[in-house]
Design a protein around this nucleic acid. Structure first.
Length: 213
DNA sequence: TCACTGATCGTCT
DNA sequence: GACGATCAGTGAG
């Protein structure tokens, strides 16, 4: 199910874990494969107050020609980053309140991506709590809007290269990933039956009703 | 635990 | 002017 991936050195209780930046060549070119690959991957955010990072536990793939994808009607100022070569951030604003974080997939011009729907906080948890209003740790990143809010992700990070040093980047998984489960995507009306959502079985940080999760 | 609803505003038609 | 890859709050079972 999961492709073999290099694991970063085991985190020690004394020292912070060493984060190994992902290279673009490690990212599967296809959006669905990338969505599976990203479950377990570490998202690192460099903030003025310090570093925060989290483990991705839930993703959704949006493919070329997919009526539910923002790229479906072609490239616009809003979705331009979705058409960048794989491994770039596509951040959009939704429902007047929330940002959602995607990783672009495919070659330049493809218009595919992976929505990061939920994460498990690993470090910088105090920073996340401060941004999320001190709610339960389980809910810090349970949902795409919450994930972005916890890490302070907004449109200023749209188009950022996630395989290069900067404010937001991807690192190799810090521990092995449990079994992956696939389901229908959440919150869409078009192509709603396609099974393109992936999450780690048993994770308490996965979003959505428990009967799907 | 789940279903329902209002809030809120950028983007596109 | 309508819609949307959401969320928090509320109330019912």
């Amino acid at each position: 199910m999961t492709s073999p991936r290099a694991l970063a050195p085991k985190p020690s209780s004394k020292r912070p874990p060493r984060l190994a930046r992902l290279r673009r060549g490690e990212l599967p070119p296809d959006a669905e494969a990338l969505a599976r690959f990203l479950v377990g991957v570490t998202v690192v955010r460099e903030l003025p107050e310090g570093r925060a990072f989290a483990r991705i536990v839930e993703t959704e793939a949006y493919l070329p020609g997919d009526a539910a994808a923002h790229s479906f009607h072609g490239e616009t100022a809003r979705n331009r980053s979705l058409f960048l070569r794989r491994g770039h951030a596509y951040v959009y604003f939704i429902y007047g309140n929330h940002y959602c974080f995607n990783v672009s997939a495919g070659d330049a011009g493809t218009g595919a991506g992976v929505l990061v729907r939920a994460g498990e906080p690993l470090a910088g948890i105090e920073l996340m709590r401060a941004r999320r209003g001190g709610i339960a740790d389980r809910d810090l990143m349970r949902g795409p809007g919450r994930f972005a809010q916890a890490l302070g992700i907004d449109r200023s990070l749209d188009g950022v290269d996630l395989c290069a040093p900067g404010g937001l980047w991807l690192a190799a998984p810090l521990r092995s990933t449990g079994p992956l489960v696939a389901s229908r995507r959440i919150g869409i009306t078009k192509e709603a039956d396609r099974v393109l959502r992936f999450y780690e079985l048993g994770s308490r940080f996965v979003s959505g009703p428990s009967r799907i999760a």
